[in-house]
Nucleic acid binder design. Sequence first.
DNA 1: ATCTTTTTGTAACAATTGGTATATTAATTA
DNA 2: TAATTAATATACCAATTGTTACAAAAAGAT
Lengths: 202, 202
Amino acid sequence: MTTETKKARGRPRVFDPDEALDKALQIFWNRGYEGASLAELTETLGVNKPSLYAAFGNKEELFMKALSKYVQGPAAFVREIVNEPTAHAVAKRFLYQAAEFLTQSSHPKGCMIVQGALSGGESAEMIKSVLMEYRAGYEKLLTQRFEQAKADGDLPSDANPAALAKYLAMLHQGMSVQATSGASEEELKTVADLALSVWPKA
Amino acid sequence: MTTETKKARGRPRVFDPDEALDKALQIFWNRGYEGASLAELTETLGVNKPSLYAAFGNKEELFMKALSKYVQGPAAFVREIVNEPTAHAVAKRFLYQAAEFLTQSSHPKGCMIVQGALSGGESAEMIKSVLMEYRAGYEKLLTQRFEQAKADGDLPSDANPAALAKYLAMLHQGMSVQATSGASEEELKTVADLALSVWPKA
DNA sequence: ATCTTTTTGTAACAATTGGTATATTAATTA
DNA sequence: TAATTAATATACCAATTGTTACAAAAAGAT
């Protein structure tokens, strides 16, 4: 039930916008916002600049749309993790899935939300803050989940939900750097096990 | 006993190379390699481009010299940490000093070796790999220290030095991202305490 | 006072950046 | 078939990227 291909007015598109956006995502993913040039984008998408602008807007908007596809696609699993039955299961699945995801060779290594625009020039300021908010977002998601776990007695009464969430977020962000530097899934999972052995018991 | 200001031939320099390099370091530190433009560099150093090139070489060489100043200056403490008497003391001081250093407001937040060039275009490839080597370098330093600790009986015989070192490196790299995103020293130290409670006892 | 030597300032360089104007092409609708 | 609509391709745009030629300037050496 995708959007019905009704009567196509005017000259038909020579590219599939969804495929093109996916390729744009790949480029932004391993080059970052500033590192991805319009030249490389148009070249590998097979779409010339006017068509690209007509379809997605300027570079910033294109990045935002690629980012949106990222969080709803490959990185969507993060949102589901909080549904695990226990806080420990949440933590374990978070780190394990991160180790797998960040090292997969079917797409760029590392996390786009971490590496997309950590530093950069003035022109990346907007994107930098957007990514910061995303990072704060999933950390908050974890915090809330652990607050609930604490209320449920699933975490001890002296547990610190915010600290536990930041611990996981920090490990995830470090994993992202490590994955970009060539660390393997196994190495990251070994560290994940180590990191999890700290987990407070109810 | 600095280099004796002997007979100065030719027109005298209008800037102090060491001060200038320090300002360049600050810029690279919070903009990254690609995010720092020659325009911003010359502007805030108060040195015009020909003089900058004569003194330091091109942008890449300038970055390398700034990086060298970074590891020998503000980030030099890392090398000393392995001299702590126990593995646990090494780990604790590593994370604590990281928490302090990465959040200090007297200089850019985060670690230059982490954020200097994580992603980026083709032209940053060299710098990216240099920074990767630096990261691998301090991780290896920790690994060796923990191998020795294991031999000394300071770590249990089933301890995994490489995993412990990667755990710390990962936390440091995550801390760097967190610091850039506005996390405070206290928050990072709270997480450091949590992270340290995993440490194997001899 | 002239000659070196070195740095400075201006001004330019080619290449690349993100972004568009314009005219052509290809489809549907009338 | 003519009119309309929309996407295409080429070619351009101003601004910025890193880098350098060149001539003027400021010092010591002769």
